[in-house]
């Protein structure tokens, strides 16, 4: 196995173009586990940790441009207020050691349905910035990025450069279910964003379908009911029945399986509870902010 260690982004793209079989590795929290179990034996490893651009984040044109190699620990420390939903998700990732290594770029590259950042990225309408030496940069909405179980929209010569996320106009929430109180892979997860500026709702479901996905109908339903009830203007309390119905519709958007971590029925049940709670917390925060 070859080990490629580019020190600049241009070198990294060139290397990926030359060796499309090279597997990119950042924190290694997914890749090294797969290799240690001999589940993957790529022709080459493309180590991106020397590419300093990937470790930067900045506000660009009103959006956070989050380098693919920014760790969860730094998201929690540096972006907790700016990207609250993603930071909440980051706090649920593994252990302190894992959060010091793991990156959102890596989470997207692995594209596991259980990746903790996906529901938050989906709810926040994040955009993935993808580059190749041959074709330059393209932007892919995160909802279009996940193409199958552990598959994504990257071409063989492409790398993830950054994730673009608009700082939220309204409250965000992230909830996750695990069978212990820390260091656990999600049995199910839910991301929620209240886009108060556009009077819409963002959602993201994790670990309950072949890919991370949105609950599009549920989001449209809730936004519509808020509109119909005049609640965007009045900031009145969220009717409990509405939150419950939203939860039901989120549940209906999922397609989970039974596995060793939980049953499909339990996953569906938890999604309805998490969605109800998350929407209520976000709405209450919105009301308090008035």
């Amino acid at each position: 196995m070859d080990f490629l260690a580019p020190s600049t982004w241009a070198e990294a793209l060139a290397a990926k173009a030359e060796r499309p079989d090279a597997l990119p590795v950042a924190g290694g929290t997914d890749v090294m586990v797969e290799m240690n179990f001999d589940h993957r034996r790529p022709g080459a490893l493309l180590d991106l940790t020397r590419v300093s651009d990937l470790r930067e984040w900045a506000l660009v044109d009103g959006r956070v441009r989050l380098g693919a190699g920014v760790t969860y620990a730094r998201i929690i420390d540096e972006l907790g207020a700016t990207l609250p939903g993603l930071a909440m998700a980051a706090r649920t990732v593994g252990s302190p050691q894992i959060r010091n290594r793991g990156t959102v770029g890596g989470n997207l590259g692995a594209a596991s349905p259980a990746g903790d950042s996906h529901p938050a990225l989906l709810a926040a309408d994040a955009v993935v910035e993808i580059s190749s030496a041959a074709r330059g940069t393209r932007l892919v909405p995160v909802a279009d990025f996940y193409t199958g179980v552990k598959r994504n929209a990257l071409e063989p010569d492409e790398l993830i450069a950054a994730i673009l996320i608009a700082p939220p106009a309204g409250p965000q929430q992230f909830c996750k279910i695990g069978t212990r109180n820390a260091m656990v892979i999600a049995v199910s997860a839910f991301g929620f964003a209240l886009h108060t500026d556009r009077r819409s709702v963002g959602t993201g479901i994790g670990s309950a379908a072949p890919t991370p996905r949105r609950a599009t109908d549920a989001a449209a339903f809730l936004a519509g009911e808020l509109e119909a009830g005049g609640l965007w203007e009045s900031r009145g309390a969220l009717p409990e029945g509405l939150a419950v119905e939203f939860g039901r519709k989120v549940r209906d958007a999922a397609a989970p399986i039974d596995d060793v971590r939980g049953t499909a029925a339990y996953r569906l049940h938890t999604l309805s509870v998490m969605a109800r709670r998350a929407a209520t917390w976000a709405w209450d925060e919105h009301r308090r902010a008035a």
Binding site: R91, T92, C175, K176, N181, A182, T270, V273, R277
Partner: peptide
């Protein structure tokens, strides 16, 4: 219950 996974605020 759930800890940092933020699944309840007491509900």
């Amino acid at each position: 219950p759930g800890g940092a996974a933020n699944s309840t605020h007491g509900e």
